[in-house]
Protein backbone atom coordinates (compact mmCIF):
# COMPACT_ATOMS: atom_id res chain seq x y z
CA UNK A 1 0.00 0.00 0.00
CA UNK A 2 2.81 2.40 0.71
CA UNK A 3 5.68 3.77 -1.28
CA UNK A 4 4.08 4.00 -4.70
CA UNK A 5 4.42 7.38 -6.28
CA UNK A 6 1.56 8.82 -8.25
CA UNK A 7 1.94 8.82 -12.01
CA UNK A 8 1.14 11.75 -14.25
CA UNK A 9 -1.49 10.90 -16.88
CA UNK A 10 -1.78 12.83 -20.11
CA UNK A 11 -4.36 12.62 -22.86
CA UNK A 12 -2.82 13.15 -26.27
CA UNK A 13 -5.38 13.76 -28.94
CA UNK A 14 -6.15 15.29 -32.27
CA UNK A 15 -9.47 17.02 -32.88
CA UNK A 16 -11.08 17.77 -36.20
CA UNK A 17 -11.09 16.16 -39.57
CA UNK A 18 -7.73 17.20 -40.87
CA UNK A 19 -4.68 15.30 -41.80
CA UNK A 20 -2.45 12.84 -40.08
CA UNK A 21 -1.38 12.21 -36.50
CA UNK A 22 2.34 11.83 -36.97
CA UNK A 23 3.21 14.77 -34.75
CA UNK A 24 0.85 13.68 -32.01
CA UNK A 25 2.30 10.17 -32.07
CA UNK A 26 5.86 11.44 -31.81
CA UNK A 27 4.93 13.53 -28.79
CA UNK A 28 3.02 10.61 -27.24
CA UNK A 29 6.06 8.38 -27.57
CA UNK A 30 8.41 11.01 -26.19
CA UNK A 31 6.13 11.46 -23.18
CA UNK A 32 6.05 7.72 -22.59
CA UNK A 33 9.83 7.58 -22.78
CA UNK A 34 9.97 10.33 -20.20
CA UNK A 35 7.93 8.14 -17.83
CA UNK A 36 4.43 9.55 -18.33
CA UNK A 37 1.30 7.53 -18.89
CA UNK A 38 -0.20 8.67 -22.15
CA UNK A 39 -3.75 7.93 -23.19
CA UNK A 40 -3.77 8.14 -26.93
CA UNK A 41 -7.08 8.49 -28.73
CA UNK A 42 -5.96 8.95 -32.32
CA UNK A 43 -7.48 11.18 -34.96
CA UNK A 44 -10.79 12.86 -35.64
CA UNK A 45 -11.87 13.46 -32.07
CA UNK A 46 -14.84 15.66 -31.34
CA UNK A 47 -14.56 17.96 -28.35
CA UNK A 48 -17.21 15.85 -26.63
CA UNK A 49 -15.06 12.78 -27.06
CA UNK A 50 -11.99 14.56 -25.72
CA UNK A 51 -13.77 15.83 -22.61
CA UNK A 52 -15.36 12.45 -22.02
CA UNK A 53 -12.01 10.66 -22.30
CA UNK A 54 -10.32 13.21 -20.02
CA UNK A 55 -13.05 12.68 -17.44
CA UNK A 56 -13.04 8.86 -17.54
CA UNK A 57 -9.28 8.57 -17.52
CA UNK A 58 -8.97 11.32 -14.91
CA UNK A 59 -5.99 12.82 -16.67
CA UNK A 60 -3.82 15.62 -15.38
CA UNK A 61 -3.28 17.24 -18.75
CA UNK A 62 -4.50 17.26 -22.33
CA UNK A 63 -2.07 17.74 -25.18
CA UNK A 64 -3.71 18.74 -28.43
CA UNK A 65 -2.33 18.74 -31.90
CA UNK A 66 -4.04 21.06 -34.39
CA UNK A 67 -3.17 21.54 -38.01
CA UNK A 68 -6.50 22.74 -39.31
CA UNK A 69 -6.45 26.36 -38.27
CA UNK A 70 -9.43 25.85 -35.97
CA UNK A 71 -7.39 26.51 -32.84
CA UNK A 72 -9.15 29.77 -31.97
CA UNK A 73 -12.37 27.82 -31.72
CA UNK A 74 -11.11 24.48 -30.39
CA UNK A 75 -9.05 25.61 -27.41
CA UNK A 76 -11.46 28.10 -25.78
CA UNK A 77 -14.45 25.83 -26.38
CA UNK A 78 -12.67 22.84 -24.94
CA UNK A 79 -11.56 24.77 -21.88
CA UNK A 80 -15.13 25.90 -21.25
CA UNK A 81 -16.42 22.37 -21.63
CA UNK A 82 -13.82 21.11 -19.17
CA UNK A 83 -14.95 23.76 -16.70
CA UNK A 84 -18.54 22.66 -17.03
CA UNK A 85 -17.44 19.14 -16.12
CA UNK A 86 -15.56 20.40 -13.08
CA UNK A 87 -12.27 19.60 -14.74
CA UNK A 88 -10.84 23.12 -14.48
CA UNK A 89 -7.60 21.85 -13.00
CA UNK A 90 -6.66 19.84 -16.09
CA UNK A 91 -3.71 21.49 -17.82
CA UNK A 92 -4.33 22.12 -21.52
CA UNK A 93 -1.41 22.53 -23.89
CA UNK A 94 -1.03 22.24 -27.61
CA UNK A 95 0.97 22.47 -30.74
CA UNK A 96 0.68 22.22 -34.47
CA UNK A 97 0.23 25.02 -36.91
CA UNK A 98 -0.63 28.02 -34.77
CA UNK A 99 0.47 31.55 -35.68
CA UNK A 100 2.54 33.30 -33.00
CA UNK A 101 0.11 36.22 -33.04
CA UNK A 102 -2.72 34.03 -31.77
CA UNK A 103 -0.82 32.75 -28.76
CA UNK A 104 -1.57 35.60 -26.29
CA UNK A 105 -5.28 35.23 -26.86
CA UNK A 106 -5.13 31.46 -26.44
CA UNK A 107 -3.18 31.85 -23.22
CA UNK A 108 -5.77 34.30 -22.00
CA UNK A 109 -8.43 31.71 -22.75
CA UNK A 110 -6.62 29.30 -20.42
CA UNK A 111 -4.23 27.36 -22.66
CA UNK A 112 -1.20 26.75 -20.47
CA UNK A 113 1.30 26.54 -23.30
CA UNK A 114 1.43 26.58 -27.09
CA UNK A 115 4.42 24.95 -28.76
CA UNK A 116 5.42 26.27 -32.15
CA UNK A 117 6.29 23.91 -34.98
CA UNK A 118 9.82 22.61 -34.68
CA UNK A 119 9.98 22.86 -30.90
CA UNK A 120 12.52 20.25 -29.75
CA UNK A 121 10.90 17.31 -27.96
CA UNK A 122 13.13 17.83 -24.93
CA UNK A 123 11.67 21.28 -24.51
CA UNK A 124 8.13 19.87 -24.49
CA UNK A 125 9.09 17.14 -22.03
CA UNK A 126 10.84 19.59 -19.72
CA UNK A 127 7.83 21.87 -19.78
CA UNK A 128 5.44 19.00 -18.97
CA UNK A 129 7.68 17.82 -16.14
CA UNK A 130 7.69 21.30 -14.72
CA UNK A 131 4.03 22.16 -15.18
CA UNK A 132 1.98 18.99 -14.90
CA UNK A 133 1.61 17.20 -11.58
CA UNK A 134 -0.90 14.58 -10.44
CA UNK A 135 -4.11 16.44 -9.66
CA UNK A 136 -4.94 16.87 -6.00
CA UNK A 137 -6.76 14.09 -4.23
CA UNK A 138 -10.13 15.60 -3.48
CA UNK A 139 -12.88 13.91 -1.57
Amino acid sequence: MEGTERKVKILVTKPGLDGHDRGAKVVARALRDAGFEVIYTGLHQSLDQIVHAAMEEDVDAIGISILSGAHMYVFPTLINMLKEQGLDDVVVFGGGIIPTDDIPELEKAGVKKVFLPGTPLEEIIDWVKENVKPRAVSF
Partner: peptide, 15 residues
Protein backbone atom coordinates in the same frame (compact mmCIF):
# COMPACT_ATOMS: atom_id res chain seq x y z
CA UNK B 1 2.06 -2.57 -20.93
CA UNK B 2 4.24 -0.15 -19.01
CA UNK B 3 7.65 0.37 -20.55
CA UNK B 4 10.21 -1.33 -18.30
CA UNK B 5 12.75 1.29 -19.35
CA UNK B 6 10.96 4.51 -18.61
CA UNK B 7 8.02 3.47 -16.46
CA UNK B 8 5.80 5.30 -18.93
CA UNK B 9 3.14 3.83 -21.17
CA UNK B 10 1.04 4.53 -24.22
CA UNK B 11 -2.52 3.40 -23.66
CA UNK B 12 -4.04 3.17 -27.11
CA UNK B 13 -7.02 0.87 -26.80
CA UNK B 14 -9.49 3.76 -26.93
CA UNK B 15 -8.54 4.33 -30.58
Amino acid sequence: PTSPFSGGAILGDRI
